[in-house]
Design a protein around this nucleic acid. Structure first.
Lengths: 198, 198
DNA sequence: TCACCAACATACCAACCAGTATGTATCTCT
DNA sequence: AGAGATACATACTGGTTGGTATGTTGGTGA
């Protein structure tokens, strides 16, 4: 592979991610992505066989990587499971304060827009959501074994609900366009997490 | 106004709602809406000055009405606040079982897609969310006064979190395309609601 | 009865869209 | 050195989009 080939592909991926994050996949314009990068259409179609494949690549590579560093890595921290969770959520909130909170969670955006009309997107998002849920579930289970988390709850169901609430909070904050609403929602989430202690 | 004029407008609104519900506002095709209704383009632009205004009307009329009968009305029921909430949520779940759950909550869909790129949509959705939240808040406050809801919680914050969780649950279920996941998430939500009792 | 207007219908338009056909420069492998 | 592949660049196409210009029809008030 050419030395530049990788970077051309990466810059396309990054620009496509940003365009999709703002306008959604369907409304994202390939020409806008090309303008933004200075790459030509021939180059784009050399690296990706269609707009759909470009979208899949954004999910499989860029968004997966982001989730890795923003969630799965913080989840590896040692300590009280509830505190680790709270810290990971806080970090996520901080990140979306720097980035525009108004653009919402990229994964949730794609889930909402595409899951009903394209199964390729749906399955990819589903896989990521399952990994996300499993990471929370594992943490809760560990806490239950250690005696720091209430054993009367079902770890899997609870993990699923925590993830849903988290996405819901980001969704509400996105529409309200205010970090204040995100904090408000975060407060409710923190209260709920505290209620899971043993 | 002509006798048929109202019904033409209504059928456009209904078809537009369905098209937007499935494909989103931006991807909704006016021609598809026309095909579906048998109305001509001239008629459409006689009733609505632009696609955007049609979208606003769908929100202001169709979706607002749906929320009225699906949420605000059940919320008027007498009884224990937590039970009223649970019943309203259950009814909402049942409704989205009949309709395709995979299409998601119409309000949440529009919020996700449009809030970042059009302020007219954003403000309309925001108003509806605020009414929604207020209805939950009022119920919780009533419960606190009656002694049936824990007085240590902040009713406004909690109402906001409940709404966020609810939207999050529907969002997750939409992507999973399974009623099972909706039930799972509902279980978590019910547990949380029970924890709010006095 | 005649003017007027609401409620359409038909035909059209420029802009934009994803995608393609074709050409070319450079790099690699033999 | 020559063949082939990689990595683009340019110019184009057919289809779709939201929107418009112009015509027609039927009811209604003066």
């Amino acid at each position: 592979m050419n030395a530049d080939a990788g970077s051309t592909r990466q810059s396309l991926l990054k620009a496509a991610y940003e365009e999709i994050h703002r306008y959604g996949f369907q409304a994202a314009s390939l020409n806008a992505i090309l303008d933004r990068t200075g790459v030509t259409k021939g180059a784009l179609y050399h690296h990706f066989s269609s707009k759909l494949q470009l979208g899949y690549a954004v999910l499989d590579e860029h968004i997966t990587d982001e989730l890795e560093s923003l969630w799965f890595k913080p989840m590896q921290q040692p300590g009280h499971p509830i505190e680790v969770l709270k810290a990971a959520i806080k970090q996520l909130g901080d990140h979306y304060e720097c980035e525009e909170i108004t653009l919402g969670c990229p994964l949730n955006n794609l889930a909402q827009e595409m899951s009903a009309i394209d199964d390729g997107f749906r399955q990819r998002v589903d896989t990521l959501y399952q990994r996300w849920q499993s990471s929370i579930e594992a943490l809760l289970t560990r806490g239950q074994q250690q005696g720091s988390v209430n054993t009367s709850i079902d770890a899997a169901d609870t993990a699923f609900f925590i993830l849903a609430s988290l996405e819901g909070c980001m969704s509400m904050a996105k529409n309200a366009q205010s970090h204040n609403e995100l904090m408000r929602c975060g407060k409710g989430l923190m209260n709920y997490l505290n209620s899971l202690r043993a």
